[in-house]
């Protein structure tokens, strides 16, 4: 049966309107417990947590390391969404740029250079004992730190995050926090030089000397 647009559109409007008003009234009834955020924010938070969970378990359980890296990318995207929810879009952008753009490419190089693709050293499942230890390692932080977080909830006043202009970050980097800024550039330089030294050490004239021992 074919229905006209003029008939369908008001029906969809009524359904969407009733859902929205229902969620709004649900939020109004939860008002004493939750701060004054729109239900859209909570919905986005739930979606991001689901993305993080899916990506996290994918990246520790997949036997193919390339798939594990794709799970890591999924987790990075979820965390970037969390940064957007926390009203810091610059950090979300940096998360995508640094982690997805640089760190994941490095990990991909590591996977490919060690030929760990689908039939590599991670191809079969670990023993039951190792899985048990893994489960213990999963539950220990949740059981120790989780109750602490919930116990201390609401002890300090919490405000809704407000976006601050990116220029303030630059001013902070060049005025108050100039020492960490310089230190991190030194650390990056030293790490790069060390990586180049380690990677190229086996080549060149000293190689034959080392292997003749």
């Amino acid at each position: 049966m074919r229905m006209d647009k003029e008939v369908v559109n008001p029906i969809i409007d009524t359904i969407l309107g009733s859902i929205t008003s229902g969620l709004n009234s649900l939020q109004a009834s939860m008002e004493p417990y939750l701060p004054e955020l729109s239900w859209v924010a909570y919905l986005a938070f739930a979606i991001y947590v689901l993305i993080i969970l899916a990506g996290g378990f994918m990246s520790i359980l997949c036997r193919n390391l390339v798939r594990a890296m794709m799970g890591l990318v999924l987790t990075f995207l979820g965390v970037a969404g969390m940064y957007l929810l926390l009203a810091s879009p610059f950090l979300a952008f940096m998360q995508l740029l640094i982690y997805v753009g640089a760190v994941c490419v490095l990990i991909f190089f590591a996977i490919m250079l060690t030929r760990n693709v689908s039939d590599g050293e991670e191809a079969h499942w670990p023993t039951l004992g190792a899985l048990g230890y893994g489960l213990l390692a999963l539950l220990a932080p949740l059981g120790v730190i989780g109750p602490l977080i919930i116990m201390h909830a609401g002890k300090i006043p919490v405000q809704v995050p407000v976006e601050n202009p990116t220029g303030e970050l630059g001013e902070g980097l060049l005025s108050d926090y100039v020492l960490p800024f310089e230190l991190i550039s030194i650390i990056l330089l030293v790490a790069m030089a060390g990586a180049v030294y380690l990677a190229f050490r086996g080549f060149g004239p000293e190689k034959s000397k080392r292997h003749s021992k």
Binding site: I60, E121, L135, A137, L138, I145
Partner: peptide
Amino acid sequence: LLLLAIGLAGLITRRTLVG
């Protein structure tokens, strides 16, 4: 905290340095 716990579990169960 979930991210920390998942990462710790992966650190224990993975066999290779890349994982």
